[in-house]
Simulated assay, not measured.
Amino acid sequence: MASSATVNPTDIIKVRQQLRTQTPGARANAFWSVGVEMARKEGIRSLAGGMSASMLREVVYSGIRMGTYELFKDKLHDASNGALSREGLPLKIMAASIAATIGSALANPADLVKGASFLRPLPYRNMRHAFATIYRDGAQAAIAAGTLSVAGGLRSLYRGVGPTTIRGIVLSGTQICSYDQIKQSLKKRGVMQEGVPLHFVASTFAGFFCSVTSNPVDVIKVRLMNDKNHQFKGAFDCVRQIMVNEGPFGFFKGFGMCWARLGTHTILTFLIYERVRYLFGIEAM
């Protein structure tokens, strides 16, 4: 939550960039141009939009994926009777993927509201109004189609859950696993010892790796979540349209802000995470 609050302005700018469809590299879509334009036209407070939804999302998403990672490592290691080595990447990737799948899927409604809170004009008065409106719109559409209103409301809240979950798996698979692996390698080779410097170095590399791998999925997720006019038939159609209309670099729109946000977020998360473990007498990750 602390990490998310710190990088919230970069997250807003990143979403605004990803929703734009100018030619890749156009100056008007540069992160500094988008940020300055927001501050000038909407006020500096616009860079703090969606804070409550971001906090709720982190409690569910990061709480589960970070909190259950080592639990699943232990469970998978025991289930394999030691065939999956604790030092190997397969065990780490599998554990991170399971934890991220659960966390990102459950957090999708908060993620949806968070993305909508970054838009202008604001589509909702507050977070409660956002959840209620999204659910009601889905329920009304379901009634009109002759199906259950509850199913329609839930389906509306879970719009884009596929790309959200895939992004969560990709991000956690590179972020948590690379942090774990880099930290383990540096300690094993005697380059660094357990402590803040080691946590900082490992999280810095992890932040870059997960920014590269998650940005394309993030672009698709943002487009689908904000596709109120049903421009896309699904994730694959979204990929096709981006490729045709914007080219391969369209998948890396907002990468500067993605790295600034996710890199900073990763460093702060692991530094705080390791410190909290230490304060509660838990062994370092």
Rank of each mutant, 00 (worst) to 15 (best):
T147C: 05
F118T: 14
G162Q: 07
G152D: 10
R125C: 11
L157W: 02
N126V: 12
A145W: 04
A144S: 06
L119I: 14
A145R: 13
L119C: 01
A142D: 07
M127V: 15
L122T: 15
L112V: 06
Q175A: 12
L122S: 15
S117I: 03
L122F: 06
A132Q: 11
T147S: 15
M127S: 10
A110K: 10
I169D: 06
H129F: 12
T101I: 10
L112D: 05
A145F: 06
A142H: 00
A95P: 06
R155I: 00
V161D: 03
G153K: 00
I176W: 11
A130F: 02
G152T: 06
P109S: 09
T164S: 12
Y124P: 05
I176M: 14
R155L: 00
L112C: 05
G152L: 02
T164L: 07
T165R: 00
Y158S: 01
L154H: 02
A145H: 07
F131W: 05
G115S: 15
T133I: 02
A107T: 10
T101E: 08
V161Q: 07
A145K: 11
S97F: 13
Y135N: 04
R128F: 13
A130Y: 01
P109D: 03
I134F: 07
P121Y: 10
F131H: 05
S117T: 11
D137V: 02
L148W: 02
R128M: 10
A144V: 12
L122P: 03
T165G: 01
A99R: 04
Y135E: 03
T147Q: 11
K114M: 15
R120F: 15
I143H: 09
P163S: 03
C177S: 14
R128T: 13
D137K: 13
T133M: 05
M127K: 00
A110L: 14
S156M: 00
L171H: 14
L106Q: 06
F118R: 02
T147Y: 08
S97M: 12
R128G: 12
I176A: 08
A142M: 08
A144L: 12
R120N: 15
T147K: 14
T101L: 14
N126F: 07
T133L: 09
T165A: 03
P121Q: 09
P123T: 13
R125E: 13
A132I: 08
T174P: 00
R128C: 08
A139I: 04
S172W: 09
L171K: 10
Y124C: 04
A110E: 10
I166Q: 01
L119H: 04
A95Y: 06
P123F: 05
G162M: 04
L106R: 06
V170H: 09
P109W: 06
P163W: 09
I166C: 04
L112K: 10
G103K: 09
L157A: 00
A99N: 05
I102H: 08
P123I: 13
N108R: 10
T165E: 03
A142S: 09
T101N: 08
P109V: 02
A132K: 12
I143T: 15
A110T: 14
T174H: 09
G146N: 01
G138N: 01
G168P: 00
D137P: 01
L157G: 04
G103F: 14
G146C: 04
Q175R: 09
